[in-house]
Structure formats: C-alpha cells, structure tokens
C-alpha cells in the first residue's frame, strides 16, 4: 500500500510540471506586453515599465517560471491587481460558495441518478426505462447554463418559487433559505452529470446482470430483488465510483459558468470577472487551485477503488 502511494505520488511530478507550465504560460499568451494589457491602452509608459518590473516580466522566461513556481510553493500564487488581499485569502473567500454549490449538485447527481439507473436497468425495455433514457439523453444535451436560464425563467420569474439568483452566507439565514438560494443552481449544474451517471449505472448494472456470478446466484435461489441490490449493485458500483471523482471535478469546473448565471460569488464568477479586469494572476491562481484539487481527487479515487474492489491489490 505504502509503495503504491509513493509510486502514484512520483507519477504526479510530470503531470504537475506540465500543469504548471501551461498555467504559467497563460499570461504570456497575450498578444503583446502583458503589463500593457493589464493597464489598458491609456496607461503611460512609466507605469507599464513599473508593473513589468514588479511582475518580474523583464527576467528571462525560464527564470520567471522558476520564480513563479517558487512563489506558488511558498503559498503565494501571485497578486491581484484589483483586489487588495493576499491571493490565498481571495481564493478562500470565493471558494466557499463554489464548494457548497458543487457538493449540493453532487448529492443531487448521485442520490437521484444511481437509483434511476438501477431502475432503468432492472426494467429494461419498459416505458420506465425508455422514459429514464430519454431524460438522460436530454440531460446530456443540456449544458448547465442553458438549463440554469430555463430554470430561472420557469421557477423564478414565472412561478416565483425560488430566487432568481444570488447567494446567502451559510449561517446568516435559515437553512431553508440557504438551500432555496442554492437549489436551482445545483439542479442546473448537476443535471448533465446526473444524466451521465444514469447512463453509466444502467449500462454497468446490465453488464453485471448478464454475468456468470449473477446466474450462479440465481441458481442458488436468490430473489430478483437481492440479485440486483446485493449481487449486481456492489459490482456495478465499481465503474461508477471511478467516475464520481470526474463528476465532482466536472461540477467544480462547471460551477464557473453556473455561478455567472445565478450571480453566485464563487471562484467561477471571480474568474469571469477577472477576465474582464485582465487580472491574469487571479485566473492563473484559480486554474491552478482547481487543477490541484483535481489531481488530489484522482489519487483519492484510485486509493478508494482498492477498498471497494477486493481484486485490486494496491501493492502491485
């Protein structure tokens, strides 16, 4: 187990190197001088030069890269030209709403989708299956921001059951109100992922139901229900578990767009606003943070995999 973890950690080094190089280069992809871009057309030459100097843009590119990595490792991934706070604090402020939204959407996506997928597989070919398959097909074609806009139109503007947008700090309002603000965004965000999980669960359960060990269980006298819920489900869960990590990441990244639809002050909105302000270092920091979470998530899922599937020997 220990050896496996060390091996996995070592394998992360090239990945993180590539991630860092890509994120570092973002700022250098601007057409022309980044400092001039940041300050806009009307800035005078002296101010641009001062910013170049303070951003270290006058150093050779490899030196800039090493300096930047050094700063990141010391927990200082850049400086916002707009918000006068250390970057880590900015990220912390904006991460809360994003995280809440992601977790809520994740709950919706799994708690609803997995049972529906099992149901569809168990009743394959029936109306219920076709209905579920159709909904999931629609879900896969419905990007979160589209669904978000349609939900606002239907449930906030017309029916007025939910607020049009915004975010309430946890604890500042009643839990119900807190949830009311997050429900439409979480639905919009989670629907596509839920659709994917439904399809995956259905396929996975169907595959397992056709396996020899399910036939063997049937020959033992196991009931249809236990066949699906005990024998098939735990096996079918293995491929589903591996995508849950990806699902979480897709939701976290997708939150960027949904936050803009619902005016939620999360890191996604921070990114979009920073684009307008040409606040490149904030964008870099956000992309870096999310990528790091992703990398850690993948590792965690790999390790978890070994717990669910006894066949996986982590020593190998």
């Amino acid at each position: 187990m220990k050896k496996y973890i060390v091996k996995r950690l070592l394998a992360l080094i090239p990945t993180l190197f590539v991630v860092s190089v890509v994120i570092f280069s973002i700022i250098h992809m601007t057409p022309g001088d980044p400092a001039a871009m940041i300050l806009g057309d009307k800035a005078d030459a002296a101010a641009v030069e001062a910013l170049r100097e303070s951003m270290g843009l006058n150093d050779p590119i490899p030196v800039q890269y090493i300096n930047w990595v050094g700063r990141v490792l010391r927990g200082n991934p850049g400086r916002s030209v707009f918000i006068d706070k250390p970057m880590t604090e900015i990220l912390k402020d904006y991460m809360g709403p994003t995280f809440a939204l992601t977790v809520y959407a994740m709950l919706l996506a799994t708690v609803l989708a997995i049972p529906l997928g099992v149901l569809a597989a168990k009743n394959r070919g029936t109306m219920a299956d076709q209905g579920i398959s159709f909904v999931s097909m629609v879900g896969i074609s419905m990007p979160s921001f589209l669904l978000g806009l349609l939900l606002i139109l239907g449930f906030a503007v017309k029916l007025q059951w939910f607020p049009v947008g915004g975010y309430k700090e946890f604890g500042s309002v009643s839990f119900l109100t807190y949830i009311r603000y997050l429900t439409l965004p979480a639905l919009a965000l989670g629907f596509m992922e839920a659709a994917l999980i439904i399809r995956l669960t259905r396929a996975s359960v169907l595959e397992v139901l056709a396996s020899d060990y399910v036939k063997m269980a049937k020959a033992k006298g196991v009931s249809e229900f236990a066949l699906v819920m005990k024998h098939a489900f735990k096996n079918a869960l293995i491929p589903i578990l591996t995508v849950l990590g990806q699902t979480f990441m897709a939701l976290l990244a997708g939150a960027a767009v949904v936050e803009s639809v619902f005016n939620i002050p999360g890191i996604g909105r921070l990114t979009v606003n920073s684009v307008a302000r040409r606040d490149y270092e904030v964008i870099q920091a956000v992309v870096l943070l999310v990528s790091l979470i992703n990398v850690v998530m993948c590792l965690a899922v790999d390790l978890l995999y070994g717990l669910v599937d006894p066949r996986v020997r982590l020593e190998d």
Binding site: V18, I23, I26, I27, N294
Partner: peptide, 22 residues
C-alpha cells in the same frame, strides 16, 4: 505525460483562461 497534464486542468476553465489571454 503532456496529455495527462493537460487533462488535469478542467477544460472549461482552461478555455476561459486561454480566451482571457488571447
């Protein structure tokens, strides 16, 4: 390895970042 690295960055965010620079 390069593919792994690029895959580690969520594509929507990366696209936003690229667009912000380009």
């Amino acid at each position: 390895r390069i593919c792994d690295g690029l895959n580690a960055i969520p594509s929507t965010l990366l696209a936003i970042a690229f667009m912000s620079a380009l």
